[in-house]
Design a protein around this nucleic acid. Structure first.
Length: 844
RNA sequence: GCGGGCGUGGUGGAACUGGCCAGACACACGACCCUUAAAAGGUCGCGGGGCACCGCCCCAUGUGGGUUCGAAUCCCACCGCCCGCACCA
């Protein structure tokens, strides 16, 4: 369509019309699989130089973007992610790298099932229709994905291997079934994920969610807690600081001690975890979690305790949140505890501010030095004993203090440890207890095991059979996948799989007798924590991934996605990578070498959402301005990490610029047949071009697309001005070609078309990234800022590299400088070569 | 409460490791040109104040201090905003 012969004048007058220009190109890239790449591909630049193995590895670039969830059509947030990702991908490709750039869909999950429930339809239909719609939008946006590697996590060909991974972990003891307190919606009669509980209520029906013990499947992520923490250091400067901090906090390592207390009279041992063993002498009472098994046993039948337990069990999440730090509730238990350091007898309580899930479910309470203990003590009239005195400030007085003191200081009231600095006390007390067998140094993590089972239909079935004789029996690998039955009844309450006899009834794989299939499906985060591996052999039905491909491409060089996955998805993926490494299936410690968190697209300060009615979809912008304008608008609005408020953004400026570039180039093609212009003009344009190339290249490397675009705008303005001043022919053409190459990763369609109009056969995207000529970047003369006493007073033009003395001479000669030096004596000078000179004076 | 981050024109944002009179590049706005008119396009102006106004001076990067020849950038305190975690022992 671009090579049609038309009179030059008519051609130059042709309007920039992205709506007819873009779709055919987009379609061609999709249909011809232009950006597909084989596993053994090597970088173009490298191949030409016959490089060694290491260099060959550097030529490969695995670019990954978080695959979308198919909830309806794309929104502006997607448009931003894909604009950023595609720009960096296209740039990487032009610099000669072999880029693996796959896409897929995270297509299991609750919304599909809910849609199915509402309409009695099959979740497949809803899911795959949405995928098709999104795919079309992504293609329309010009994204250069490898369409030969598409995966959907809901395809049996995919979840077969999710199940295989489950079994790998199961056999290694990393997957297990146990009872746990989970979120239960009494209205929907189902378990909810934490993410599905909003402010203590079910996100679907708004019922108040309660905690309920159920037998669930877990992945033993806690076994990797220390590694997950340690290896964050490998990601320094490569992952955003805040993501690493969030993961570190989530893992939550705390160093302290285990201390053994004894039940007075019975001699039963109860272990507590504390980070402050130095305050043991300050323990004035003892607290158990309400559900602590020892308390249940000892207090069974006690009306006060039973009543309290009942009350706590029925407390909803929402109440727990609202009572927060005030109203701690507890009951005095009918026994006392003995403190191992001094044998002191202290009263035992059960209170809801101690959690069964953290530490050992029991604590020693030191009200003087822990705020929660302090509040509970004041409430119950329990004694407060100061055992740490701050180094400076007024000494603490237990009778009058209004808050706990958790800071550092000197140990007091602690027998043999008095006078020691608290850290020293901490160490010694722990050592001494250890010597007596009553304690030890101990590290505790906040991280809990990953609860992966869901009582849901639309997920990967857990490949386990429950047999009365054999117990839990894994489904043999050659019988995978355990398929989701298509004919389920969504009108039943709870998990439809439980009500599907054909699914549930199965022969035990071990003894062949009738058994029962596990009806839980896996959390969708399991699906998404390994998809980057499946991209390496998406169609291989003999194994989960191509080991050779994995070794060649991993780790992912660049991962782009939203910060909302800072913990869950990224932590799970890191865990699974390490587990699979230890099982011998791959050979990297960390899956994602670099991470870029793009900002969110918001609307007038608020998140876009359907319920707010402020959802903006790309469709409107496509129809008005086209995809290039949308892409460039997203990238020009600010740095990629920053949020974009669509209310502040206007695509019009970008559209005007693209139109100017279009016109500039068409006019050049039509008119600039012969070279024209002075040597000075030619040199000036060449310098401007190479400055833009150097600057924009650096910006691309740093993903600063907004400033890169600013430099391209400057260049296009310079070219236009040069043409107006009479420059024509080859020098203009050179500048134009560089401009198009710089713009190609951003305005992929416009540049493709104009490149062809310039008479090139191939694609602009297949060209090699322009290189700035260093000789054209240096100026013979430079402007030097002249300061007098730190204030800028003038500028002088001197030869580049001029020595300090001659710069000073030139500076003193400058008119405005001379005025300011009048009556003053220069006592020193500071020179920044080729940039500035500062003359420091005093009155003469 | 703990942790992380951010405050620059009317707006989005620039300013490499402290150094080119802070404000690139745009948006919006204003004036003018083109036009019968509008749209589109083009040119110019655009932080505040001042003057002996072809040029120069003063103030200005949330506020107040400090370090430095020199601070949007580094340090301290305060004010404001955003995000994460939150009875974690």
């Amino acid at each position: 369509m671009s090579t049609e012969m038309v009179p030059a004048a008519a051609d130059a007058a042709q309007r920039y019309d992205p709506l007819t220009l873009e779709p055919p190109i987009a379609r061609r890239w999709f249909e011809e699989r232009t950006y597909s790449i084989p596993n053994h591909a090597a970088g173009r630049a490298i191949v030409g130089e016959g490089a060694d193995e290491e260099a060959e590895g550097q030529g490969r670039y695995y670019a990954l973007t978080m695959f979308p969830y198919p909830s309806g059509d794309l929104h502006m947030g997607h448009a931003e992610i894909f604009s950023i990702h595609d720009a960096l991908v296209r740039h990487a490709r032009m610099t000669g790298k072999a880029v693996l750039n796959p896409i897929g869909w995270d297509s299991f999950g609750l919304p599909a099932e809910n849609a199915a429930r509402r309409r009695g339809a099959d979740p497949r239909e809803w899911t795959y229709r949405n995928i098709e719609e999104q795919r079309a939008s992504i293609v329309r946006l010009g994204c250069s994905f490898d369409w030969d590697r598409v995966v959907h996590t809901s395809d049996p060909e995919y979840y077969r291997w999710t199940q295989w991974i489950f079994l790998q972990l199961y056999r290694a003891g990393l997957a297990y079934r146990a009872e746990a307190l989970v979120n239960w919606c009494p209205n929907d009669r189902t378990v909810l994920a934490n993410e599905q509980v909003v402010d203590g209520r079910c996100e679907r029906c708004d019922a108040v969610v309660v905690r309920r013990p159920l037998t669930q499947w877990f992945f033993r992520i806690t076994r990797y807690a220390q590694q997950l923490l340690d290896d964050l250091d490998q990601l320094e400067d490569a992952w955003p600081e805040r993501v690493r901090v969030m993961q570190r906090n989530w893992i939550g390592r705390s160093d302290g001690a285990e201390v053994v207390f004894t039940v007075a009279g019975s001699g039963e041992d109860v272990v507590v975890f504390t980070t402050r063993p130095d305050t043991l002498y300050g323990a004035t009472y003892f607290v158990f979690a309400p559900e602590h098994p020892l308390v249940r046993r000892k207090m069974a039948g006690d009306p006060a305790y039973d009543g309290f337990l009942e009350e706590v069990a029925h407390r909803s999440e929402i109440e727990r949140l609202s009572t927060d730090l005030q109203g701690k509730r507890g009951v005095r238990l009918g026994f006392d505890m003995l403190n191992p350091v001094n044998g002191e007898r202290i009263p035992a309580y059960a209170a809801d501010y101690v959690l069964m899930e953290y530490g050992t479910g029991a604590i020693m309470a030191v009200p003087a030095h822990d705020q929660r203990d302090f509040e509970f003590a004041r409430q119950q009239g329990l004694p407060v004993r100061v055992v740490v005195q701050p180094a400076d400030g007024a000494p603490l007085d237990a009778a009058t203090m209004s808050a706990a003191y958790a800071g550092d200081g000197t140990t007091v009231n602690s027998g043999p440890y008095d006078g020691l600095v608290w850290q020293e006390t901490k160490r010694r007390i722990t050592d001494d207890l250890a010597a007596r067998g009553l304690g030890r140094h101990r590290v505790n993590f906040r991280l809990r095991d990953w609860l992966i089972s869901r009582q849901r239909y639309w997920g990967a079935p857990i490949p386990i059979v429950h047999c009365e004789d054999c117990g839990e029996v894994p489904v043999p690998d050659d019988q995978l996948p355990v398929r989701l039955p298509p004919d389920v009844d969504f009108t039943v309450e709870g998990n439809p799989l439980e009500h599907h006899d054909g699914f549930v009834r199965v022969d035990c794989p071990a003894c062949q007798r009738p058994a029962r299939r596990d009806t839980d499906t896996m959390d969708t985060f399991v699906d998404s924590s390994w998809y980057y591996l499946r991209y390496l052999s998406p169609n291989d039905d003999t194994r989960a991934w191509d080991r050779e491909g994995v070794d060649r491409w991993l780790p992912v060089d660049q991962y782009t996605g939203g910060v909302e996955h800072a913990i869950l998805h990224l932590l799970y993926s890191r865990f699974l990578c390490k587990a699979l490494r230890d099982l011998g299936h791959l050979d990297v410690d960390e899956p994602f070498r670099r991470l870029l968190n793009q900002g969110q697209v918001i609307m007038a300060g608020a998140a876009m959402s359907k319920s707010r009615g402020n959802l903006v979809v790309p469709g409107g912008v496509y129809e008005r301005y086209g995809a290039d304008t949308l892409r460039a608008t997203m990238l020009f609005s600010g740095p990629p990490e920053a949020d974009i408020d669509w209310a502040d953004v206007s695509p019009e400026g970008i559209h005007r610029w693209l139109t100017r570039v279009w016109r500039l180039i068409l006019e050049h093609v039509a008119q600039d047949s012969a070279d024209a212009g002075s040597d000075e003009q030619v040199l000036a344009l060449r310098k401007a071009t190479h400055r833009a190339v150097a600057g924009a290249s650096a910006d691309y490397d740093a993903f600063k697309f907004n400033t890169a675009i600013a430099k391209m705008m400057e260049l296009s303005n310079t070219i236009a001005a040069a043409r107006r001043d009479g420059l024509a022919g080859t020098p203009v053409r050179e500048a134009i070609e560089a401009l198009l190459q710089l713009m190609a990763p951003i305005a992929c369609f416009l540049t493709e078309e104009l490149w062809a109009r310039l008479g090139h056969d191939g694609s602009v995207h297949a060209t090699t990234w322009p290189k700035a000529d260093p000789a054209l970047l240096v100026e013979e003369d430079v402007d030097i800022v002249v300061q007098v006493d730190g204030k800028v007073r003038d500028r002088v033009r001197v030869p580049s590299g001029a020595d300090d003395a001659s710069v000073e001479a030139a500076a003193r000669a400058a008119r405005n400088v001379a005025r300011h030096l009048e009556g003053r004596e220069v006592v020193s000078r500071v020179v920044v070569p080729d940039r500035l000179i500062n003359l420091v004076t005093r009155p003469a």
